[in-house]
Nucleic acid binder design. Sequence first.
DNA 1: CAGAGCGTAAACCGATCTGTTTCCTTCTGC
DNA 2: GCAGAAGGAAACAGATCGGTTTACGCTCTG
Lengths: 196, 196
Amino acid sequence: MTTQATPRERLLDAAGELFYRDGVHIGVDALCKAAGVSKKSMYQLFRSKDELIAESLASHGPSYQRVLEPGPEDGNTPRERILAVFERQDAALTDGDFRGCPFVSTAVELKNPEHPGSVVARHFKQRLTDFFESELVAAGAEDPQLLAVQLTMVFDGASARAVVRAQSLGGVGVTLAASVLDAAGIKAPALAGQTR
Amino acid sequence: MTTQATPRERLLDAAGELFYRDGVHIGVDALCKAAGVSKKSMYQLFRSKDELIAESLASHGPSYQRVLEPGPEDGNTPRERILAVFERQDAALTDGDFRGCPFVSTAVELKNPEHPGSVVARHFKQRLTDFFESELVAAGAEDPQLLAVQLTMVFDGASARAVVRAQSLGGVGVTLAASVLDAAGIKAPALAGQTR
DNA sequence: CAGAGCGTAAACCGATCTGTTTCCTTCTGC
DNA sequence: GCAGAAGGAAACAGATCGGTTTACGCTCTG
């Protein structure tokens, strides 16, 4: 049965998928049809399409983070945990229907940085940078703040490349992130002297 | 006087600016109005809006490249010439109305990688990678192909970050590119042993 | 001066956009 | 059974979309 979740959940789900797949310029009609919700319901659940964009992005942010964040099988050193993010990204990029980081894509499409959706995107990108930074602090990096921003850059660069190339990256993002960590003196445990 | 260039040139100019500023979803009416060209003329100069998108991107690509490419004042070693690209990008990002690399932005907005505009974008991104690679070959890098892709990633990552942050990067892209070159053994001339 | 082109302005087409409204069915609590 | 709320289907509004067509200047050439 289509009607298992509430109309609100169905709308947020459909919005997350269609905005990502087709862009935020997809019509409200198509969105509601996909969600099995009437426009009337949509407009009494959300003030406007812009609000739906922002809320959809916000509701899918945590799950997006969970996909990227390292699990217990990814090792316990900060370096391993950071590189696990890039390995997961690379794996996601290999999936055919990957269209780049949804936050970056949405911000690019919206153009206006004050759009509520852009604000949400900025927030979640900061969360990724914060994750990198806390791991880098744990690794004893010299300038964790700068390095965290650089790693976020690598992440978004890999995502952008996947979009324009429309094919797998073959792990270039992972090796690039590893290079950055190498240059910062955060070495691989088995090959060189470990940090501790 | 508005009418100095041909209608075709005026259209390509206006398209380059408006597609970049407002996105490719801007209407043909607004475009023609900005260019001072009638829709009839537009549609006998270009088969469709999609073709105009692609041709506009293609016509502005060379000038975009010229802005990035290093001049004689940027030094002559490959390392200097590569880093000059990132310094120029950083300078462009400081300009208020920068909205990311136009090729990446267009590819993200179009979604469809087979769209003529996406093909043009892919082409010009490859040109940047090729520039990096030729410089890296000159520098005697071990794996110039991989490094060139990595540098392109850094470039696009810096661009993406400028979009979501909507503010200057403070040279993080330059330092990241320098780190990548450092890690590849392409050292700064004065500080460490040079490659030759 | 006649006539051929070129290019703009503007009407027009059907489709789609965001957002509102009306109507009707369905489900729930009593 | 029945009142009342919830929500879907669909019409509606006014604007805009990509694209075509008509009509009217303007300028060049013979």
